[in-house]
Amino acid sequence: MGESPGRRSSSRRHHTVPRFYLKRFANADERIMRVPLCGEQAPRLCGVKDVAVHNDFYSYPDGSGQLDDSVEIALSKLEGDAARVFRMVVEEECWPLPGPERKTMARWTAAQYLRVPARRQAANEMFDDLTKITLAVGGKQELRKRLEAESGGPVSDEEVERKWAEKTDFSSYTVKAPVLHHLASMAGGISAASDVLMQRGWVLYRFKRKALITSDHPVSLVRDPRTPHWLGAGLATAEAVVIPLDRRVALMMSTPGIPDRTKSPSAALAWDFNQRSAYGARSAVFHHPDDTPLVGVELPSKRTREMRASHNPEDFIRPEPPPGA
């Protein structure tokens, strides 16, 4: 996603959902209705510039310790290209898209799927679990080696015992992966993910009366009912990928191999898309201030975890190596 490293963007406030996209669900004053998930605050009218914002979310420290914004700069370039394609689809009613513009839409959708906070949280949860499991399996012997490497000399039994008690109190701390892990995964995954989306048949729906919502995680996956319950859904394995492009337009990336086309919308389909957007949200959904699209839509509770492991790190604790090891 390269720009030259070390460049700083003009703002530390990074949108994890682009402003140009959110404006499509806002009024002329760029105000949008933010509806928190169940248990959160009341709905309120917000400026587009103030929603889905995280400070320095795409920045990472370079070799000199300065924040590098090359990822944010590359995303901004992709957003500029995508905004033009959105105008072609929504305002100019250009469909199917020509090849280059279709590829831009695929890349933007792939990037949007990979860039959101949920992806980073999932990576952090996996990193936390694996770090703690490695410590538990290694036992005090491996902990001693690590402490001696850090201190540059021998450590006492008392220090090992103290550190072991501290580090195996797993619920008292979390270990986060370096930010660069998520950014590298995102940058490396966009091309492969967009290739998968390019192979799908795209279906466009234009709604005249019913309004659509979006969320802080706007790309939704339609799970294939034939998929085993224990297997997750991804861009390649989902039955379809859905993203609202505008308060009146939705795109469904469906079965591979079929031609791109438009289909007639319905009230039931609008509700289905809105319910999927709500279920995909992590903190809030958004809609145009003049619309009432949440009638009959269930808002879930705020999600606290992205992953569920079948075992806890405590299950792997081995303070001492087994006999003969």
Score class of each variant (00 low, 15 high):
8 R>H: 10
11 S>I: 15
23 K>S: 14
24 R>L: 05
25 F>M: 13
30 E>C: 13
33 M>R: 12
33 M>F: 04
35 V>M: 03
38 C>Q: 10
42 A>V: 03
45 L>T: 09
55 N>I: 15
56 D>Y: 07
56 D>C: 13
57 F>C: 02
59 S>I: 05
67 L>G: 04
67 L>F: 09
67 L>T: 03
76 S>P: 06
80 G>T: 14
83 A>C: 09
85 V>W: 15
91 E>G: 04
96 P>F: 14
97 L>Y: 05
120 R>W: 05
130 L>G: 13
130 L>I: 08
159 E>H: 08
165 A>H: 12
166 E>P: 06
179 V>Q: 09
187 A>E: 11
188 G>M: 08
196 V>R: 10
198 M>F: 13
203 V>A: 09
207 F>A: 02
208 K>V: 14
216 D>G: 06
218 P>L: 01
222 V>A: 12
229 H>Q: 14
231 L>C: 08
232 G>T: 00
244 P>R: 03
245 L>G: 11
257 G>P: 12
269 L>C: 10
270 A>P: 07
274 N>L: 01
281 A>R: 00
282 R>E: 09
287 H>V: 03
289 P>R: 00
293 P>H: 01
294 L>K: 00
294 L>E: 00
297 V>S: 03
304 T>N: 02
320 E>V: 09
325 A>S: 11
